[in-house]
Amino acid sequence: MDTLITGRVWVVGDSVTTDAMYPAFAMKLPVPEAARHIFYELRPGWTDQVQPGDIVVAGRNFGLGSSRPVAALFRELGIAALIAEEFNSLFLRNCINHGLPALTIPRATEAFTDGDTARLDFAEGWAENTTSGTRLDGSALPPLVLDILAAGGILPKLAREGYIPAPAAHPR
């Protein structure tokens, strides 16, 4: 698995909740439409600017809140990875289970501003701001988690193990 990712970054603050990313009204919509409402209040219009391959950088306690599958919406927009100073564990698990790399890097929001380019390796646990040249070390993901990411998420893994029909293992 290629664990090295490079992309343009978007920076958000501390304690961004799941409700701010996947509001209740969007839960009634199909995933492609729901994905248009990420950060609907925090950064209106963001989903029109974001490009496939971009990376979101967040502060502490990222993803506090509910179990709604926000990661499926980020995947829908083509977000390549998330970096946060600290993840809520439920949110982190959701990202991994949807095949979205999520890397914990202390002080990440100080090192990046909107539009910088980040390079990261989630198996080795580091991120670099190639615009400014700053490199930060974080925590590498455990091997068991890397296996889920390598499979493209938990549903493709289950399909391979014969629990679900293969075409149904669409990663969302």
Binding site: P69, N94, N97, E161
Partner: peptide
């Protein structure tokens, strides 16, 4: 359980926690 407030079950000394729908599905299977 597929709900973030599953830690409620801790009142009964249970290691109870909320997990996303994909993970609960996986536990259902395995």
């Amino acid at each position: 359980c597929t709900d973030s407030h599953t830690c409620a079950g801790g009142a009964y000394n249970t290691a109870a926690r909320g997990l996303g729908p994909a993970e609960v599905y996986s536990i259902l299977c395995t």
